[in-house]
Simulated assay, not measured.
Amino acid sequence: MKKLLNDPADIVADALRGMAAAHPELRVDSENRVVFRRDAPVRGKVGLVSGGGSGHEPMHAGFVGAGMLDAACAGEVFTSPVPDQVVAATQGVDGGAGVLHVVKNYTGDVMNFEMAAELVAAESDTEVVAVVTDDDVAVQDSTYTAGRRGVGVTVLLEKLAGAAAEEGRPLAEVADVARRVNATGRSMGMALTSCTVPAAGRPTFDLPEDEMEIGIGIHGEPGRRRVPLAPAREVAEMLVEPILADLDLTGGDGVIAFVNGMGATPLLELYLMYAEVAAVLEKAGVGIARNLVGSYMTSLDMAGCSVTLLRADDELLRLWDAPVRTPALRWGG
């Protein structure tokens, strides 16, 4: 294993220390391992809290800032944040308008966010609503979940719900936006290589040089099938066609198309993949209204990519175009 680290046991704490130094617009609670936007809590604004295991950067801490998350909890690598972390984050962003928890559908995440919400309710009158993402069409149940995994739609949801909250909408409306995004978005991923968890020091699974895994999870969970390496145009078909079979995305205002790198895939290959995804969608009669290309929800040093498609409408496109200022996403005024 070759990694830039001091001690594998300290990798999350050391990374948060670096994040605090690099982004003075954020506030890092090192004790609880929570990253806040510096002006949190914003009075009268719904607070957005998310989090999960580290190793998926920039998800989630890289999405903390105006127009997106108010706080993110960093668990150990591929390990859910504990309830106390979520409680600290929730209390730290409560501006009097309630708090939305954005939770990926992994058993530990769901359980710990639920426990945290119960603890907050016992200690205060803060209203907390949770929306769980479960957009992965690869498998119905997996190593870490009951039901579909929460993957790429989580990035889009945090942007769109974050924009709605920034407008000053009430908690019920922000939660409705989040639920609608989850209901109308689907994802599918693949891997060319495994990832290596620092504490383990070896690849999570063995993937021969001439094979790839289709339907992989973001923790290295197995997917639908293992197949021989294929050209990018065929990989695009393998990822897009199951999404289109699961959700009708034709007509209307098109889709927001997100091609995501898994951590070790260069942009050269991701843009190539986006061109192939766009070609598959054009052939299927699905228009692209907006796009996002890059490594935003990773699996440490895994090579591979995922595709997320979200059905667009006028409101979601307006929220997508709204300004956002975070370390990983930044556009607009």
Score class of each variant (00 low, 15 high):
Ser306Asn: 02
Val139Phe: 04
Asp7Cys: 08
Gln91Met: 13
Met297Trp: 01
Ala175Cys: 09
His219Asn: 06
Phe205Arg: 04
Gly261Arg: 09
Lys2Val: 13
Pro231Gln: 07
Val131Tyr: 08
Glu57Thr: 03
Gln140Ser: 11
Arg37Met: 13
Ile218His: 06
Asp94Tyr: 14
Leu100Asp: 09
Thr79Leu: 01
Asp10Tyr: 00
Ala236Lys: 07
Leu319Arg: 09
Arg226Leu: 09
Ser187Tyr: 09
Arg226Pro: 02
Val49Ile: 05
Thr107Ala: 12
Leu310Asn: 02
Ala230Met: 14
Val99Met: 13
Ser54His: 06
Glu123Arg: 14
Leu247Ile: 12
Gly55Ala: 05
Phe113Thr: 06
Leu247Lys: 10
Gly217Glu: 01
Leu319Asn: 07
Glu173Met: 10
Val42Asp: 04
Gly52Glu: 09
Leu100Ile: 05
Asp70Phe: 06
Pro24Asn: 08
Ala178Asn: 07
Leu272Ala: 14
Asp141His: 15
Thr90Arg: 09
Ala257Val: 12
Met59Gln: 05
Val197Met: 10
Leu268Glu: 00
Asp141Ile: 12
Arg180Gly: 14
Asp246Ala: 15
Asp39Phe: 03
Ala303Phe: 01
Val235Met: 14
Phe205Ile: 05
Lys45Arg: 15
Lys45Met: 14
Ala191Ile: 02
Val93Lys: 06
Leu292Gln: 00
Ala275Lys: 10
Ala178Phe: 10
Val120Cys: 08
Asp134Cys: 10
Gly215Arg: 05
Tyr296Cys: 03
Pro327Thr: 02
Asp210Arg: 11
Ala312Asp: 03
Ala275Met: 03
Asn6Gln: 11
Ser50Arg: 04
Val131Cys: 08
Gly168His: 10
Leu171Cys: 14
Val197Asp: 03
Asp10Ser: 12
Ala161Thr: 10
His219Thr: 04
His60Gln: 08
Leu319Tyr: 04
Leu281Ala: 00
Leu160Glu: 08
Leu316Lys: 11
Val181Tyr: 11
Asp94Ala: 15
Thr126Ala: 13
Arg318Thr: 09
Glu123His: 11
Val139Ser: 10
Pro327Ser: 01
Gly75Ile: 06
Gly55Met: 03
Lys159Met: 10
Thr90Cys: 12
Asn32Val: 01
Asp39Ala: 15
Glu158Thr: 08
Val227Trp: 09
Ala257Gly: 06
Asp70His: 13
Leu268Gly: 05
Glu166Arg: 12
Ala97Pro: 07
Gly215Trp: 06
Pro8Ala: 05
Val82Arg: 13
Lys2Thr: 15
Val137Ile: 08
Gly55Tyr: 03
Ile256Gln: 02
Glu211Ser: 09
Asp136Trp: 06
Ala275Val: 02
His60Ser: 12
His101Phe: 13
Val28Ile: 14
Ala275Thr: 08
Ala303Asn: 00
Glu211Trp: 06
Lys2Tyr: 13
Ala22Ser: 14
Ala146Gln: 11
Tyr271Trp: 01
Gly201Trp: 03
Ser50Tyr: 02
Met188Asn: 12
Asp248His: 11
Asp134Trp: 03
Met111Glu: 01
Met238Arg: 15
Gly285Glu: 05
Ser30Trp: 05
Val102Leu: 15
Gly98Tyr: 07
Phe205Trp: 07
Leu100Glu: 09
Ala97Ser: 15
Ala328Glu: 03
Arg186Ser: 08
His60Glu: 08
Gln91Lys: 13
Glu234Gln: 15
Gly147Trp: 07
Val35Asp: 02
Ala278Ile: 01
Leu267Ser: 12
Phe113Asp: 02
Ala116Ser: 13
Ser306Tyr: 04
